[in-house]
Write a protein that binds this DNA or RNA. Structure first.
Lengths: 189, 189
DNA sequence: GTCTATATAGTGATAGAC
DNA sequence: GTCTATCACTATATAGAC
């Protein structure tokens, strides 16, 4: 996916800056400064600031969409499916935390791709919801309001990027063991 | 706290707009339009755009700080303390979801108050951590990595504002019953 | 691929009339 | 308390030389 072109470098640098202050607060000059070139030179590689944001967000959103489809269609138990969703979020967070920050915080600044993004996000949530509802129906999951369960899982998974980068050296393997325990089994003895 | 002055109205309108697109993307003209006045007129009530952000965020941060202090100093069980923290977040979310959005997403655009905010945020997290560690030490909480537990609780509580406004009619009472169950006891049967 | 120079359209904020 | 007019600055983006 990353071809190591000049364009990819610009997008990576931009994503990192967007994570720190948000899309709107970062200027083309900020991005250029970090690249050690002039702002005008950026336009030799990208068409607009907007294009940078689109590339960052849509790429990740499509990854989530594709993987979630595989999980939903599998014949596993609800518990196993939930574990796979948690691992999916951990994997993408480790691979591209900066892009996840943009997806979470700057999606509303999409323009041409806004409707496409919202459609993917809604479909993802609906797939997640249907997994939970199946689990409640077959007794694997406690019979509580599925919206509260969905929200509390999603909010933790979506903000993993905040926490993962903060403590640089978190072990992915340990995270994949402890996170499902904490989210699914609770913390009270 | 809200004296219903013109200034308070400006701050409330601004907070709502900041929630939708973030502090940096909202202009003084946007705020003025919603107030149905001209941008220049805003300056008769506030000193700067920055002052608006400061007022929104610091007010809420101080509320959290004060309430957390009370909870930490109480002689309750860990379980009861955690319930109180969850209720604190629910209460503030219900009362001022827009301000919470700014606190979560735009705190980095604070200037004079940035250090003060970070200090309050860190103190809050440390208090939360110490409650969890006490619970682990006395066996009330499972002996898992307290950082993962802290993160998963905090991330859900901090983003409650996203979800509460989306479904306008969520019952606070029901939320206060179901949320602690989901977060503390888990969802697997 | 990068530069300088520049066009065009905002931005936060002030001055002073009503 | 609001307005019009305006300032100084900054934004994204383009043109064309090297």
């Amino acid at each position: 996916m990353n071809k190591n072109t000049r364009k990819d470098k610009i997008i990576a640098v931009a994503a990192k800056l967007f994570k720190e202050k948000g899309y709107s607060a970062i200027t083309m000059r900020d991005i250029a400064d970090k690249m050690e070139i002039k702002a005008a030179s950026l336009y030799n590689h990208i068409q607009s600031k907007q294009e940078i944001l689109d590339t960052i967000i849509i790429q990740i959103a499509e990854q989530f969409t594709a993987k979630m489809q595989t999980i939903v269609e599998s014949k596993e138990t609800t518990y196993q499916k939930l574990r796979h969703i948690i691992e999916l979020h951990i994997d993408i967070t480790i691979e591209n935390a900066d892009a996840l920050a943009a997806l979470n915080n700057d999606w509303m600044h999409l323009e041409g791709n806004l409707a496409y993004f919202i459609q993917m996000r809604d479909a993802y949530e609906n797939n997640f919801r249907s997994i939970l509802n199946t689990g409640i129906a077959n007794g694997e999951i406690v019979a509580r309001d599925p919206e509260i369960i969905l929200f509390s899982l999603l909010s933790t998974l979506r903000t993993l990027y905040l926490w993962y980068t903060k403590k640089g050296g978190v072990d992915a393997k340990k995270l994949k063991e402890d996170m499902p325990e904490t989210l699914l089994n609770g913390i009270i003895r």
